[in-house]
Design a protein around this nucleic acid. Structure first.
Lengths: 244, 244
DNA sequence: CGTAGGGAAGTTGTAGGACGACTGTCAACC
DNA sequence: GGTTGACAGTCGTCCTACAACTTCCCTACG
């Protein structure tokens, strides 16, 4: 039997199970290449049907986290380490930095309310000139600047009492509090050489950056933020797992 | 009713169905945001069980291609256009260029057999000094150079009669012929400013590149190629779909 | 002794049927 | 007009059964 772990929540059971397994894998409970418990064992362990277990495993497989082999079992992908800092995992930069074993930090450079530029309006799918909140921040890891970010959040429908909170802590946390947690982001990657991007004493000498130009969407498809993050080349490792 | 399309093949049925649906979506048969046929309809259409249909849909959902909504239906993700050129889709660059509506081309600059460097051996998980085949190529789209690639293929276990074919056409095609089709790749992304990367009259003036430093793995986990592809900034659009 | 072959056990893949939960629509009602 | 409720359509989960594949052990044969 070994019954335990109720998995309570509001999203679908298989999603929650996938998240549970994902966190167990990430925690290092299963080493890369190690074999996961069989589907039958997971059925007993979590008291769910085999369909649910298989659905969860399929999700993890599509994410590249596990490898399901017919007749043999499910195995943790050998790329676990890379995925842990993967670019396709949508999460706050601070969280990623912490998971990579460093102490995240942040310094707000400016924060103003202003009308959206044409480019911003286009990216966010709002009218040009609509009110937005623009924040400029420096992202730190162990006290060293690893990125400079220019974030824009549309104000329409955003709770006024939370506006001042934007840019003071995790952007994701504030958006979640506002009920517009990003579920997906479409990001363009560029190489940028520009001396005017960064600021302060930590500005890198050759102004070479990897720019992540991304629009965040809520689960229902509305744009909730437009973030341009300039990562100082060499101070942050970008990893992408590609599959077919 | 409407029986047809046998889906014959050797991989699992659900994988083939996912691929079939993926290609139908990519072809534009279903517009972004459009509703896919219901699971029951797909069951009738392809003569497979609902388990198989659901498994395929789950795979596509995890890849960000479709959005399955409880009680409502399955919908093509609004990000279809971006995903079509997505970085996490592992496929040949030429194929990607063609899908983006341009005519792919290629020029081989050099191709030699030599011992692996220490870095290459480390990336490929082989002994330092083991024999590799190194190819330098220029990737073209509509006659314009979009990338310069430095590829390294370990020779151990590689069919000798196919070595000369490396670098003359699609690297993927040759690897597939050799039975070592890449199934996954772990890629690092860097911004590079270096005047010595490219060559020829098409060399970009400010030598600014997005470097995709990637190791390709076969389905069983062995490294089959180490490819450094320098994309000329501005001539190729990198898109990454991030999910959580 | 060594090896090839066969079989058993374990595991994932697919099938079919059943029911619950959720969504969107529309008609009836207040 | 707005709300409520019924209803059909659809996805989520469960159950049972069997096929296909892998791995390992053990036997039979050389």
């Amino acid at each position: 039997m070994t019954v335990s772990t109720p998995l309570g929540g509001r999203t679908s059971l298989s999603r929650r199970l996938a998240e549970e397994l994902r966190s167990r894998i990430m925690s290092g409970e299963f080493a890369p290449g190690a074999r996961l418990p069989s589907e039958a064992e997971l059925v007993r362990r979590y008291q769910v049907s085999r369909v649910t277990v298989r659905t969860a495993l399929r999700t993890l497989e599509a994410q590249g986290l596990v490898d399901v082999r017919h007749g043999s079992g499910s195995f943790v992908s050998d790329f676990g380490a890379g995925i842990r800092a993967g670019l396709q995992e949508l999460r706050s930069i601070s969280e990623t930095i912490r998971e990579m074993g460093h102490e995240p930090g942040m310094e707000r450079h400016s924060a103003i309310r202003r009308p959206a530029t044409v480019v911003e309006a286009g990216k966010l799918g709002i009218g040009a000139g609509a009110g937005v909140f623009a924040v400029e921040r420096m992202i730190l890891a162990d006290g060293q600047a690893v990125a400079f970010s220019y974030d824009v959040i549309p104000l329409a429908g955003f709770p006024p009492e939370l506006v001042d909170q934007l840019g003071t802590g995790s952007l994701f946390a504030t958006l979640a509090e506002a009920g517009t947690m990003p579920a997906r982001a479409l990001a363009e990657v560029h190489a940028i050489s520009d001396e005017t991007i960064g600021w302060g004493p930590q500005r890198p000498d050759p102004g070479l950056y990897v720019l992540l130009d991304q629009v965040h969407f809520s689960r229902r498809g509305s744009a909730v933020a437009y973030c341009r993050t300039y990562f100082v080349e060499g101070r942050f490792q970008f990893v992408v797992l590609r599959t077919n």
